[in-house]
Each structure stands twice: as structure tokens, then as C-alpha cells.
């Protein structure tokens, strides 16, 4: 209860403080979504591919987005953007299958962020292990900011990993390594394992997982957005 009140207040505070117009718009549009049942709220599942795990030194390579509208995932609205990075894709190329050549067609980080904010406005973000993705976006927004002494703007999202963590702890005393990975989570809900990995497929995987979790928690019409947001 306290955290829900806190999120609302914090969002209001941030949207007043924020100097960047696009970010402010996004923050303001979040407010009316908080009290909606999950099923009615427009959701946007997101996945980032990065060169590493440190938001300060590593970069975003690609962004996958897919919306969930009325409990349905519309594949034709799925989007995937590659981002130009400084230097080489390096180590992570082996994981994501992206090579430098692919990045020739990519957007600049600034263009990508503008696009992302526009897509996310009026929608609730969903991600698996959201804090990592959010911190990369927060960091990138801060770096791109034209305004001097801007503050980092905290982003809120529904984290399917956190939901799974809580649900699992209710059934078992401790969680073993690997049990919270996206595909392990999915198999618990009889969801197929998607073997290809790119940001769009992972966003879709995450979106399906959320719908499965929500239906097991009593259905999307009973749970409010603010109950899951963190």
C-alpha cells in the first residue's frame, strides 16, 4: 500500500521536476494508468540487448518492443530497432548474434531513445529483470540530456522476474540458481521455449510470461497496475 502511494507521489514529483519535455510527457501519462486493472491497461513488453551488464560502461545494442492490449499480444505491432554503438559489439556478439555489420543500418542512441519514449507514452513497461533494462535506459537518457545538471529520472516497470520470485517463494523456501531465467519461468506455465534470441523474441517471451502469471494470480481484471509496478 505504502509503495503504491510512493510510486504515485514520486511520479508526480518527477514529472514536475523533469526538464525534458518528452520524458515529462511520458511521466504524466503514467499517472492515470496506475489505477487500471492490468487487463485494461495498455502494456508494452520491452527487452534490451547490451554489450555488458554495467549501465555506466556498457551500451544498448538493440531494443525489442511488443504491446499487450486487452490481454492480447499483437504480433504485427512488434518492433525491433538496432542502435549504433561506439566501438565494437565485442563479446556479446556471440550471445545476441549481432555483428558490427548489422549495426550499419542502426539508429543513433538519441533517435532510439526518442522512439522508445514515444512508444512507451501511455503504456506500462514490462520487462524480465526490469531493474537492469530500466537502469540502462535511465543512464542513456541522462547522458543524452541537453540540460545541464539534469537528475537521473527513475523509470517504473512491471518486472516478471520479481513476480516470479515472489510466487516461487510462496511455494518453496529458497530459489535455486537458474530458476528465475526467462525460459525456466516460462516452462512453469506450459509456455513453449523460444530458442532464437533477439530483443523482439525476448520481449514477446516476457509478454507471454506476464499474461500467464497474471492469469494464475486471479486474472487481469482483478489486479491493478500499481500492485505490480516497481
Amino acid at each position: 500500500m505504502l509503495s503504491r502511494w510512493f510510486i504515485k507521489t514520486h511520479l508526480q514529483y518527477q514529472s514536475r521536476q523533469c526538464k525534458d519535455e518528452q520524458i515529462r510527457k511520458y511521466q504524466q501519462a503514467q499517472l492515470p494508468l496506475l489505477n487500471l486493472p492490468i487487463k485494461e491497461a495498455p502494456l508494452l513488453a520491452l527487452d534490451l540487448e547490451m554489450t555488458g551488464l554495467d549501465p555506466k560502461s556498457d551500451q544498448i545494442i538493440s531494443i525489442g518492443l511488443i504491446p499487450i492490449i486487452n490481454g492480447q499480444i499483437k504480433l504485427n505491432q512488434g518492433r525491433h530497432k538496432l542502435i549504433k554503438i561506439a566501438g565494437s559489439v565485442g563479446q556479446s556478439a556471440t550471445i545476441h548474434g549481432l555483428v558490427d555489420a548489422d549495426l550499419q543500418l542502426a539508429l543513433s542512441l538519441d533517435e532510439a531513445l526518442q522512439w522508445l519514449l514515444k512508444e512507451a507514452t501511455g503504456r506500462v513497461l514490462v520487462a524480465h529483470h526490469a531493474p537492469l533494462d530500466m537502469s540502462f535506459i535511465e543512464q542513456a537518457l541522462l547522458q543524452q540530456s541537453e540540460h545541464a545538471n539534469s537528475k537521473k529520472c527513475r523509470l517504473y516497470a512491471i518486472d516478471t522476474l520479481k513476480i516470479e520470485h515472489q510466487r516461487l517463494l510462496r511455494k518453496q523456501p529458497m530459489i535455486k540458481e537458474g530458476e528465475l531465467r526467462l525460459n525456466s519461468c516460462r516452462s512453469r506455465y506450459n509456455l513453449p521455449s523460444y530458442d532464437a534470441h533477439n530483443a523482439l523474441v525476448d520481449a514477446l517471451s516476457c509478454a507471454e510470461l506476464l499474461m500467464a502469471q497474471v492469469s494464475k494470480m486471479g486474472g487481469g481484471d482483478k489486479i491493478k497496475v500499481s500492485e505490480l509496478l516497481s
Binding site: Q72, I73, L75, N76, Y189, L191, L204, A207, E208, S215
Partner: peptide
């Protein structure tokens, strides 16, 4: 054209 839906 597909829409994906989960049923429990």
C-alpha cells in the same frame, strides 16, 4: 497477423 493469448 497473429495475436497471442494465454489461457489458464
Amino acid at each position: 497477423a497473429l495475436t497471442v493469448v494465454y489461457y489458464s
